[in-house]
């Protein structure tokens, strides 16, 4: 196990071995895979401020290749990773969130996570205004102009499809029915990399000392 190496060479500096096996118990990852993820975590968490936590700018740098500027989606992803709401992502939070993105994670967990991403104001509903805000944000990001009436029509049709009780907002049940009919909406919720994180990233294996 990982603890037997502790006296010889320090591994997972900043994250205790016991915690590693605890994380392995509560997620789909093995201790080996967690060690590989820890290498990734160390890389991300030291890219700007080397303090053992991922700051929003660091996540932004990793996902958008720039630490600057506002990004609605990045903010939501960061908020969902930051379980403790202390403004940084710690390793256990990183692992908990990535666990949902595991190819074998339950689809209900993915559906729920996606719902929370889109529920910008965290009201328990995805509202029209929120969907509109996200579409507009993407149009701005990609410098695409779309006439207002076309935008309204897209929102209108989306809600006609998703908002079964026609109250102008999508609740969790409606969301579930909707995404199961449009499974491609969950594509972003699965990271194939996570299935075999230790072999997909041989450079991480180099630092890994645990054998299966």
């Amino acid at each position: 196990g990982c603890c037997s190496h502790r006296s010889r060479r320090p591994i997972n500096r900043g994250f205790a071995c016991g915690n590693m096996s605890h994380l392995a118990d509560e997620t789909r990852f093995t201790v080996n895979e967690l060690e590989a993820l820890y290498e990734l975590f160390k890389k991300l968490s030291s890219s700007i401020i080397d303090d053992g936590s991922i700051h929003k700018e660091e996540l932004q740098l990793a996902l958008l290749q720039t630490p600057q500027g506002e990004n609605l989606f990045l903010d939501r992803v960061f908020d969902l990773f930051d379980e403790k709401k202390n403004g940084v992502i710690e390793f256990d939070e990183f692992v908990h969130a990535l666990n949902v993105f595991h190819p074998y994670a339950p689809i209900d967990d993915k559906i729920d996570f996606a719902f929370r991403l889109y529920d910008l104001r965290q009201t328990g509903f995805i509202e029209r205004e929120e969907v509109k805000q996200m579409v507009i944000a993407i149009l701005m990001e990609s410098d695409v102009k779309l006439p207002d009436d076309i935008l309204e029509e897209i929102i209108e049709k989306t809600f006609a499809d998703a908002d079964a009780d026609k109250d102008g907002k999508i609740n969790k049940e409606e969301w579930k029915v909707f995404v199961l009919r449009h499974p491609s909406l969950l594509k972003n919720m699965t990271l194939p990399y996570l299935k075999d994180v230790t072999t997909v990233f041989p450079s991480y294996i180099f630092h890994t000392e645990v054998e299966d």
């Binding site: 890389k43 990793a62 996902l63 989606f73 996200m134 579409v135 449009h182």
Partner: peptide, 25 residues
């Protein structure tokens, strides 16, 4: 053709694409 707003958001938003995280050098 009907463009689903969520389809648009999930396929276009880089901030939601965590795979980028694994491509950090």
């Amino acid at each position: 053709p009907f463009l689903n707003a969520f389809e648009f958001i999930s396929s276009m938003s880089e901030g939601f694409d965590l795979s980028n995280m694994f491509e950090t050098k």
